[in-house]
Design a protein around this nucleic acid. Structure first.
Lengths: 335, 335
DNA sequence: TCGGTGGTGACAACCGTTTGCCAAGTGTTG
DNA sequence: CAACACTTGGCAAACGGTTGTCACCACCGA
């Protein structure tokens, strides 16, 4: 029978009145239950239930400074790479009782700073998925608001990075063992930290085999880049390539098919990340499987543990997650 | 030179002090500029800029009741169908100056109610992507907080629905014209409104051709269901099927390939939604292309226009977006 | 010269919680 | 039995804005 709609919302003052205690007691009974005797606590909680009391987050935030909200900042919600991250952070945040705010920076560092700066007071912290920010800006921002970065390692800012570079080495071994001698890297956006890291790893791995390191690109992020990339790779005459990410690789696959280039008979392709779709593309993509979702969860854990205990105890500042090569059907012996 | 970190944050009181006006004037100069003379306004804005003033959203929310936040509620962030919606709402919300909160109900109606009920005070409104709520619960909730539903039409709650049923008819025509006589529907979760709508449309369309309407399922949402679904369809001996959504269809494709059932030679498959991946699967999927992203944008527009003007002017309560059949390679002549 | 008018800005009362500080009450100990 | 240490709960001051109400001012026409 709670049909008494259109009423002034219930506040802790109402509960206080109903139970005959002070509002402060109600507040404590509700938020720090141990601070109040069992009997009173019960009475208050019962009253709260009866009155259908719902806390008012903004008021709470104003008084306490804690908002119970964490933002996930991505450069482009469109990118399927983030899907896993959204999912992982969502799960873990919910478990920790935080709300999940989604911010899209549209690939702009300025946007990234501005948004975070503006919203800092309404956030308890933020998780930066693949930040485009220069290191010093990142550090400055971290002073304003608790931050955890993903796939971006800057001294002083806690981070979780997926160790794709190590995976790249595996990929190169794989290709070399298939007889490939001419392997090219398909480069992503220059500002991307991951892109740099992957290219470096690639160079190192090829060097170990005394093979030349070549790359095409850079290409802007997005599946559309696949067609340009495919054409460029074909022009190099390489027999295999490693793409900056699966989005590129998937795009290339489509384009190569269009051009009549057989994969893997004419050209082997390996991607990075193992995003949704990599397993049912044509052919299924050999790729570096990244624990993206886990990275999201991890990032939240790092952040939340820092938020919960007022004592900023020393803890792991940077966690590294391994990747492994998932061999499917886009790679094969040298033609 | 704003290196004066670790300071007490700037408030409008500081601006008031700096310019020699009252805080109320500052507040008005910042939020309703026309309410203040040009000269004062300039002075105040300049001071705000100098002091690097950033408004405090919770305080604003507490005083005004408006939070500047809108939630997108999905049953499962994991489902690629929502990716387009997330993208669309994100874009439009940002443009309208709202923050974008993401809520996952984990496919539970109880969760959905509880979350929304709890967060209602920190939200200006919510967009329900494929709500699982019974109609009356939906209406009750809409009384608590401004709502717009997507793909769910309940009297009294503004909505945008994607007209997949009309598309289904097209799909059936397509299949019939290819000679198929035995077409089966692969049913999704029973509580899904869309699923019901699609099945009804399917029945009607088949009826028009005096063909029997059959279905398999229901299957739980998720790509995994594809294997069970594929097996079930094969058992019916049908030569074509329409799947509740692309996720199912994509899953089926994988399973059918595994079993050696050729698509479309042995079995034609059509999906719904045209999610990411439908165009590069093997074979590329014939599907009903739904303007999901546009639906998201539309939903936000509906909501925001209702929020902005205090006068709840009569306006379009339900918008319907058309779909069309995208024929790719998963459908072909009857074997 | 005086009353009227429109516009500007100040006062102060909220909005709903949290929390530091303190007083009263309880039980324990010497 | 008194002194003491803990609990327990109340008071009231924040937190940072918004907004209804009203005083004041200058300018206008009569």
């Amino acid at each position: 029978m709670e049909g008494d709609a259109r009423k002034r919302p219930v506040t802790i003052a109402d509960i206080a009145a109903a139970t005959g205690v002070a509002v402060s007691t109600v507040s404590r009974a509700l938020s720090r239950p141990s601070r109040v005797s069992a009997a009173t606590r019960e009475r208050i909680q019962a009253a709260a239930r009866d009155l259908d009391y719902v806390p008012h987050p903004p008021a709470r935030a104003l008084a306490s400074g804690r908002t119970g909200t964490v933002a996930l900042v991505v450069s482009d919600v469109t990118n399927p790479f983030y899907f896993g991250m959204i999912r992982g952070t969502q799960q873990q945040l919910k478990a920790a009782g935080y709300a999940h705010l989604l911010i899209d920076t549209e690939d702009s560092a300025d946007h990234e700073i501005a948004m975070l700066h503006t919203m800092r007071r309404s956030l308890d912290g933020a998780i930066l998925g693949a930040s485009r920010l220069p290191a010093r800006a990142l550090v400055a921002l971290a002073a304003e608001i608790p931050l955890v970065t993903v796939n971006r390692n800057v001294r002083g800012v806690p981070s979780v990075v997926i160790d794709t570079p190590a995976g790249i080495a595996q990929a190169v071994e794989h290709l070399v063992s298939l007889g490939h001698r001419s392997i090219v890297y398909v480069s992503g956006p220059t500002q991307s930290w991951s892109n740099q890291a992957r290219w470096q790893a690639m160079k190192a791995a090829l060097d170990r085999h005394h093979l030349p390191a070549a790359r095409v690109g850079p290409f802007p992020s997005g599946r559309g880049s696949g067609v340009a990339a495919a054409d460029a790779v074909v022009n190099t005459g390489a027999t295999a390539c490693v793409a900056f990410n699966d989005l590129f690789a998937l795009g290339m696959l489509v384009r190569l098919r269009e051009r009549g280039v057989a994969v893997p008979a004419d050209l082997s392709v390996v991607g990075c990340d193992d995003i949704f779709g990599a397993d049912f593309s044509n052919p299924p993509l050999t790729t570096l499987t990244a624990p993206i979702e886990q990275a999201g969860r991890m990032a939240v854990s790092l952040l939340v543990s820092r938020l919960d205990h007022r004592a900023p105890q020393p803890q792991r500042r940077a966690v590294v997650l391994p990747t492994y090569l998932t061999v499917r059907e886009s790679t094969g012996p040298r033609p």
